[in-house]
Design a protein around this nucleic acid. Structure first.
Length: 492
RNA sequence: GCCGGGGUGACAGAGCGGCCAUGUGGCGGACUGCAGAUCCGCAUACAGGAGUUCAAAUCUCCUCCCCGGCCCCA
């Protein structure tokens, strides 16, 4: 089936056709690095992580670019407060960003261009725009003249007339028209600056993305992504600059992720209602966070509140449990059903959902359907070893994209994998349960020993003792569950 | 004010013309020594009003409410 993508430009879903067959150039707006990343940034990164992974899954040769804005008013202001150089601050924050994202298992982009390293490209673009009559210099700054633009507002639906009503010129700006925007800003005393044909200064915000797209992908990029908050004016202005400079369509598909909200309000640094990724990961596994984000539509706003991650954690455990039990069943199942009918349907449905604008939540629903059916086969004793393998293979494919299941080891203690000596020692040994220590249980053999003792106790209907063993091991984070295939233990 | 996106069962969140979403929670049942896991079943769901249609949560119009953007922002 063919992939369709929702394009902000047309506000419709369209079949995806890259400029060059088989290749995709995707540019995703990155962050302004003046502070730690929060959950909202994680949402954007994880949404696009899945999109890129799925494009690769579909066989496209993908070039993924994400920028860092490391030259900006807020960075300068923060650095001044801290008494350090702006680029030093941004360098630290970039490192932190990479660290956070890798702890969330976000795959790296192919290139992370920085504004500070793209200055010459921006300068030549600005010069070109002046030459072509789209921009003008004024007191050391350069502005893009919106009155020269042919199609103002085609992405956001804004019209110039309406915008002009509310716009005003800030003191110290030298614009001819209030809606004009800065391509290059003359340096104020004491600020970082670069030399340019217009004197000392630094680039405006919008120009960096245009320059980076051109440099790393080309005149036309297949997919340009970012948060919905960037649609206007950032992306709108990028279109104006790039199309004026390149004489080519700038972007084929605009993709915008919905904002993460907290108690229904947008999470943002300025509102001070954010949670840093680092803090959240102290309480929850990265898989839980990924699942929370992927278990929703990338385009819709996603509301976070106190209980959402706890609920997500339970929901994910359901899949994880099935994954674990299917893995065990590969060696232990005894039925004859190879589950082919299930797994083939699951794969078809899964891809159909993902092909429909990366509907991850629906794709997840398909996985729940699959595991429910597989669990039923398994508990009815109908699932074969091959069947378990087939189910695991599908879940692994799913997981290559979503990265939410872990290979956490579960261990089955069952008659036919227990040696005679283990059995004897479990029966005759008189060791004291109260002396059990974490050190002892570091040895899996000792865990098996206690699990076997418990089995023996259960056989002789000494349930009080069996329960004491289970409770004792639980104190050390070892969870024992009885199943038809024997006792299963795992470290929590 | 202008431009977008929404209002779905206890809750979270899909679907966008006819058929079961899915998950969490609740209740009942199966299995089990117990626990857990798993399975099965149950619950006045589609903001309100009018219309189109054989058929509407899904299309059209109106009303009400929420969120985002319009300075920076994923």
């Amino acid at each position: 089936m063919a992939l369709i993508i929702h394009n902000t430009l047309t506000r419709n879903k369209q079949p995806f056709e890259p400029l060059i067959k088989g290749k995709v150039g995707i540019y995703v707006c990155g962050v302004t690095v003046y502070d730690h990343s929060h959950l909202g940034h994680a949402k954007s990164a994880i949404n696009f992580d899945l999109i890129v992974r799925y494009l690769r899954y579909k066989g496209y040769d993908v070039t993924h670019i994400t920028n860092f804005t490391d030259v900006d008013d807020k960075i300068i202001a923060r650095a001044n407060e801290m008494g350090i150089e702006p680029l030093e601050l941004s360098r630290t924050m970039i490192e932190k960003y990479h660290k956070d994202m890798s702890s969330l298992k976000v795959k790296r982009a192919d290139v992370y261009p920085k504004a500070s390293e793209t200055i010459p490209d921006m300068i030549s673009m600005v010069s070109g725009l002046i030459e072509r009559g789209y921009a003008y210099e004024s007191n050391g700054s350069v502005y893009f003249s919106v009155s020269k633009a042919k199609e103002y507002g085609k992405l956001s639906g804004q019209s110039l007339d309406q915008m002009v009503a509310g716009a005003r010129i800030e003191p110290g700006e030298d614009k001819r028209d209030p809606m004009d925007f800065a391509l290059w800003k003359a340096a104020k005393p004491g600020e970082v600056f670069w030399e340019s044909p217009w004197g000392k200064g630094r680039p405006g915000w919008h120009i960096e993305c245009s320059a980076m797209c051109l440099k790393h992908i080309g005149k036309t990029v297949d997919i340009h992504g970012g948060g919905t908050d960037l649609v206007f004016p950032h992306h709108e202005n990028e279109i104006l600059q790039s199309e004026a400079y390149n004489d080519a369509p700038y972007v084929r598909y605009w993709m915008h992720n919905g904002m993460l909200t907290i108690d229904s309000e947008k999470m943002s640094k300025s509102l001070k209602n954010f949670f840093s990724i680092e803090d959240i990961l102290k309480k929850y596994a990265p898989e839980v966070l990924r699942f929370f984000i992927l278990n929703a539509s990338y385009r819709a706003p996603l509301d976070y509140d106190e209980g959402s991650l706890d609920e997500t954690k339970k929901a994910l455990e359901k899949l994880q449990n099935s994954y674990g039990s299917m893995k065990n069943a590969i060696s232990l199942a005894s039925g004859t059903d190879d589950a082919k009918a299930l797994t083939e349907k699951a794969m078809t449905d899964f891809e159909a959902r993902m092909d429909d604008d990366f509907s991850s939540r629906e794709a997840i629903a398909v996985m729940y359907d699959l595991t429910r059916e597989a669990n039923r086969l398994h508990s009815d004793g109908r699932l074969s070893k091959q069947g378990a393998e087939n189910v695991v293979a599908v879940l692994d494919k799913f997981n290559d994209l979503f990265d939410v299941l872990t290979d956490r080891k579960t261990n089955v203690v069952k008659e036919d994998n227990v040696s005679a000596s283990e059995q004897v020692s479990a029966e005759v040994s008189g060791e004291n349960l109260d002396d059990v220590s974490a050190d002892e249980l570091a040895d899996e053999g000792r865990i098996r020993f206690w699990v076997l003792r418990r089995e023996t106790a259960r056989k002789t209907k000494d349930f009080a003792y069996a329960d004491r063993i289970r409770n004792k091991l639980a104190e050390f984070g070892i969870d024992i569950q009885d199943s038809k295939e024997g006792a299963v233990w795992k470290r929590k």
